[in-house]
Design a protein around this nucleic acid. Sequence first.
DNA 1: GCATAATGCAATTTATATGTGACATTTAGA
DNA 2: TCTAAATGTCACATATAAATTGCATTATGC
Lengths: 65, 65
Amino acid sequence: MKNIRLKMARIEMDLSQEELAKKVGVTRQTIGLIELGKYNPTLSVCIAICKTLNKTLDELFWEQS
Amino acid sequence: MKNIRLKMARIEMDLSQEELAKKVGVTRQTIGLIELGKYNPTLSVCIAICKTLNKTLDELFWEQS
DNA sequence: GCATAATGCAATTTATATGTGACATTTAGA
DNA sequence: TCTAAATGTCACATATAAATTGCATTATGC
């Protein structure tokens, strides 16, 4: 399922997928596929994304409550 | 680095690594290696562990604050 | 001390996350 | 409308998470 919260957090920081990818240290495709929910990132990638966007794991990757 | 919080949460539920692994749907080795910090689980495994132990991602996998 | 369960560890295999490069499609601004 | 940036998607290669099996080591109770 799509990760809307990730996309929104990225856009709030005014970053393109490519810019976020560069900061996180992955490729544009990896960010794109995570936002689309087409795969299952590793914990280290999740944490790197969270740190870059000033969010926590629960805020971006835990299921909605 | 070792994941002490995971180990403590597991022991609080009175589960062995093997029992937790079975509930989560992975092998004993996967749980053991995650507790030892020797690898980098996927998000889906992290979420399955959290649900089994009634914890959130931040509680078990986000860095200590 | 002894027996058993729990855990660590190592080699090999398999599945899949991720990288790379190229191209198509969508979106946004002039 | 035109153009360029942003995003989606595909094929293929590589790295590594995870499974599997087996054995060694460390607790823990009797």
